[in-house]
Design a protein around this nucleic acid. Structure first.
Lengths: 206, 206
DNA sequence: TTGCATATCTACCGAGTGGTAGGTAAATAG
DNA sequence: CTATTTACCTACCACTCGGTAGATATGCAA
C-alpha cells in the first residue's frame, strides 16, 4: 500500500516530478521563508502556495492545516542542526555551541527571522506555537545550565557563580542580538557575542 | 469652533460622557493591550472597539486608520516616560536609565509585550512600523553610546573599551530579557540585569 | 428654540482568510 | 489493459478584515 514514488525525469504537466517527501520539504522551506518574513499569523497559505506554483488546496494535500505546516517549519532546523550542535557543545564547549547557533542563523536569515518573529508572536498564550516555545526555552535553559555547572565544578568558574543568571544572560544576549541584527543589518553580532563572552569569563574568572 | 466638551455625570445613552481627548486616550490604551497581546497585524480594530463598547466605525471616528492608531499607541509611552528617563540618565547614569526602562515595562506588561512583539514584527521592511523601529534603535544606540563615551573619557572605563560593542550588548540584553520574561514569567529580569551590568563593569574596570 | 457640530450607529463593500467537497488527469500496481 | 492511488484543480463556504456612506440622536451655543 505504501508507495515509493519514483521521480519521472521528463515531468509532464502535473505528473509526479518529485517524490512526496521532496515536495513536502520544498513546501516547508517556503513556509520558513514566508513565516519568517511576515510572521505566522500574517503569512497566508496562499503566500506559500503561490511562491511554489501551487494552489491552497494543493498545498493542504500535503499538510492538513496551517498549524501543521508551522510545526513542520519549526521542526525543520531542530532535526537538521541538533546533532552538530550537540557535537560542538561536547567537544568545544557551550560557548562554541552558542556561537554556532548564531552562525547558523546568520547563514539562513529566513530561519533567524522565523524564530525571532515567532518567539515574540508565541508570547501570546493562545498562539499555536506557545507551548513549543515555552518548552524550547525551558530545555535551552536546562541544557546550558548543565554545561555551566560543569565549568563551576571543574573550577573554571568560581563556585559562587549564579548559573541561572548567567544562562539567562546568555540566552537574552543571543536573542537580543538577533533581533537587533534584523533591524540593523550592518551589525556584526558574532563580534559582539565574542567580546561579551570574553568579558563574562574575564569577570567571573578563568 | 473648538469644543471644550464637559463630561456629563449621569451619562445618558451615547451622550458626551468624556471629552474627545479622554476618549482617544482610552482607545489608545486599549490598543496597546490588544496589539501587545496578539501583535499589530493580528489585532483587529474590532478587538479594540469591542473591549471598549464601541463599533469599528465608531472607533474610526477618532483615528482615521488602523495604522494611525498603531502610531498613537507607540507614541504613548515615549511621550509619557521620556522626561523621567532623561532625568534618571543625567542624574544616576545610563545604567540606572536602562534599569528604569525595564522596571517601567515590568509594571505595564501590555506595553512590554507591545514593544517586543512589534519590534520583531516590524523587522519586515513592509511593516508600517518598520521605519519607526529602525530609527528608534539608531537613536537608542547613539544615546547610550554618548553616555558610555563619557565614562571612557572620565576614566571609569578603560580607553580601549569598544563602545559600540558594549552598547549593542546592553541593548541586546534588555530586549532579550524582556522576550524571555514573556515566555518565562517567573524570571527576575531586573536581577539578571543588575548582575550582568556588575560583571560588565568588573571586567572592563571601574 | 433653532441650528450646528459631534458621537455613534446600521448597513454595506471588496478583498482576503483557512478549509472542504468533489472532480480530473496522470502515474503506478496488478 | 484495468484498477487504484496520487496530485492536483475549480468551486465554494463561512468568516474576518479595514474602511466608507449615510442616517440619527445628542449636546451645546446662539
Amino acid at each position: 500500500m505504501v508507495t515509493e514514488a519514483k521521480t519521472r525525469v521528463d515531468g509532464k504537466a502535473r505528473a509526479r516530478r518529485t517524490s512526496r517527501e521532496e515536495r513536502r520539504q520544498q513546501i516547508v522551506e517556503t513556509a520558513v521563508e514566508v513565516f519568517g518574513r511576515v510572521g505566522y499569523r500574517q503569512g497566508s497559505l496562499k503566500d506559500v502556495a503561490d511562491s511554489i506554483g501551487l494552489t491552497v488546496p494543493g498545498l493542504l494535500h500535503y499538510f492538513p492545516s496551517k498549524e501543521a505546516l508551522l510545526m513542520a517549519a519549526l521542526d525543520l532546523r531542530g532535526s537538521v542542526a541538533q546533532p552538530e550542535r550537540t557535537r560542538v557543545a561536547d567537544e568545544e564547549g557551550f560557548l562554541a555551541a552558542g556561537r554556532l547557533i548564531l552562525a547558523e542563523n546568520l547563514a539562513s536569515p529566513g530561519l533567524m527571522r522565523l524564530y525571532i518573529t515567532l518567539a515574540a508572536e508565541a508570547t501570546d498564550e493562545d498562539h499555536p506555537a506557545h507551548e513549543y516555545f515555552v518548552q524550547r526555552y525551558a530545555f535551552t535553559h536546562e541544557y546550558f545550565a548543565e554545561r555551566l555547572d560543569a565549568l563551576v565544578t571543574s573550577g573554571v568558574l568560581p563556585s559562587d557563580t549564579d548559573v541561572d543568571v548567567a544562562v539567562s544572560q546568555l540566552v537574552a544576549l543571543m536573542d537580543g542580538l538577533q533581533l537587533q541584527k534584523l533591524l540593523r543589518p550592518d551589525l556584526d553580532i558574532l563580534h559582539v557575542y565574542d567580546r561579551s563572552m570574553a568579558a563574562l569569563f574575564a569577570a567571573h574568572g578563568g
